[in-house]
Write a protein that binds this DNA or RNA. Sequence first.
DNA 1: GAAGGTGTTGGAAACGCTTCCAGTTGGGAA
DNA 2: TTCCCAACTGGAAGCGTTTCCAACACCTTC
Lengths: 340, 340
Amino acid sequence: MEDATPTKVTLVDIARMAGVGVGTASRALSNAKNVAPATRARVLQVAEANHYVVSPEASRLAKGNTGRVALVVPHLSRWFFGSVVEGLDSVLRGADLDVLLYHVGDVRDRHEFFERLPARRKVDAVVVVGFQVEDIERARLETLGVHIVAAGGQTAAYPSVHIDDRIASRQAVDHLVHLGHKRIAMLEAVDPDQPHLPSTRSPGYHDALAAAGIAIDPTLVVSAPWGGEDGAASMSRLLGHPDPPTGVFAHSDEVALGAVRTLRRAGLEPGRDVSVVGIDDHPLAALSDLTTVRQRPAEQGVLAGRLLLDLLDGKAPTEASTTVPTELVVRGSTAPPRRP
Amino acid sequence: MEDATPTKVTLVDIARMAGVGVGTASRALSNAKNVAPATRARVLQVAEANHYVVSPEASRLAKGNTGRVALVVPHLSRWFFGSVVEGLDSVLRGADLDVLLYHVGDVRDRHEFFERLPARRKVDAVVVVGFQVEDIERARLETLGVHIVAAGGQTAAYPSVHIDDRIASRQAVDHLVHLGHKRIAMLEAVDPDQPHLPSTRSPGYHDALAAAGIAIDPTLVVSAPWGGEDGAASMSRLLGHPDPPTGVFAHSDEVALGAVRTLRRAGLEPGRDVSVVGIDDHPLAALSDLTTVRQRPAEQGVLAGRLLLDLLDGKAPTEASTTVPTELVVRGSTAPPRRP
DNA sequence: GAAGGTGTTGGAAACGCTTCCAGTTGGGAA
DNA sequence: TTCCCAACTGGAAGCGTTTCCAACACCTTC
């Protein structure tokens, strides 16, 4: 490349070269009205020829908005969160907004984020991805004075896009019930960072059992942190139960896969000896022949992105909160109980 | 919150309220030297009381840098990429840099990114995460005139952090060799978006077989796109082989898990009937009892982040390219062949 | 007591854009 | 022909910082 100079050409230069005033040059480039077509063409051509690009800082400073959106994301390395972000990114980029990423891995990160609010003055909106915002945090967030949207999470306080956890769990447990299972366990997952929050997927479990006239056996419900290893451990506990379950509903696919490993190691075949169902339809669920309830995180991201664009455009969103449907995906890990 | 006004207080206001000039106020806030301690304290206190925050746009405009870094990432929803980004994010945030995310899912996105270069003028550096930059793209990237770093990929043109694919594959195949396997297949993965690129993990396979004095059987090498379903399909093909392999080396854990599913469906038990080894140590590998070669993407992200900070500080990095070691993790999916 | 620091300060001049305002032009209506 | 209005245009005034420079005070040091 010959143009070693990192192109330090400004609007003034372009204007001069095109033989117009800066005002006109600016209007031409931002395709505003009141510019003669010929003039605009000339300016555009000169700009093109000189690889001119507006200085975002100057532009933003002058017009007052930032053209950026912050994404606050807890566990980026997990499929669900990554997918939501992918979806968000695609629509925001389409609208020429830049995406500022704030990964808040653990409580510490999170506290720091809400304490310092590094996004302050840097964005036009904030998207909270896949976690519940606590009250104190909410108060802090509000001081930003920007739009806030929740994607893939059930934060009631903001416009949001999410699945109905209660229905999803119900779909999973109903499936086990219809197969004829009576002793159905639940592997609950709690967020170690927010241990006080109730499991959002237990109500559906209760609903399904109640509807089937099956009494809840509290000893069949085990709680553990979110994660495969924890799921495996929980399953171990259940195997020690005097009257073990024939069906297991896991909070998520990852937890379910942990349970599957425990079963295999115990010489039990998932689907044949014990049925297991999860939630998510993680790509690896298909590879593990795991029955699950599918949610589409990328789609949730897309919808949340659109919602945000509407808010930024001043259009009140048609619905403050969108629920994305989930669907049961039957695979090999579930079957009628051995002794019905 | 009473302060409903989104705090439109500027440096000038602060200066006036503190009874100092704007210059002094600026110096005090940016803790530069040549400010009397008392004066600084006063300014800081006034700023604090009024929830003053500098306008990044104005600040950047005046000082000329952006304080931002762009991350160009192909498949955010995959564990590897998400993890690298997590690592990067943590160190960049620590240095008070903002992270701009550019997700380039497919060829189209990618072309568009390099064509439009939306990051132009918006960042001080670019990190390319986990993919190879082609020559034309490189030329485009260079026109940005900013630092470029590769994380988790083997782009030789830039300072980078990555594993040694050749060694990693060698570790995997050596393991199979040591167990006594003679017929060892390879499930190659090609990036559908860059089908012309040679597999980076084949050389190690060849090395290992050569070292063991095993002749390469080209019919035992199958190529397919990256992904579990493709791995499953490739494994199916191998099962139809007249003299099928007893050991399988898969390009990645995801591909390996696909192979495992095929084996199970064929009534074969991984580890007992056929050995399978992958690369990555994906969290779900442990849940599937998959033997693998571990790489630590988050660590790669962290190191790449540090590398970048050094570059931005003007310190020439001690080493332009860092290789992160990998290690064999033996689990249940590998064992000596049935008939040795 | 004069000369020369040193540490601190205020203010002006960038930084590169957008937008408002006033001016110019040309064409149609009266 | 005159007048008016619309379409265009140039330039100045911000936007909110940082930084440079001149000014000043107060000490030291000869």
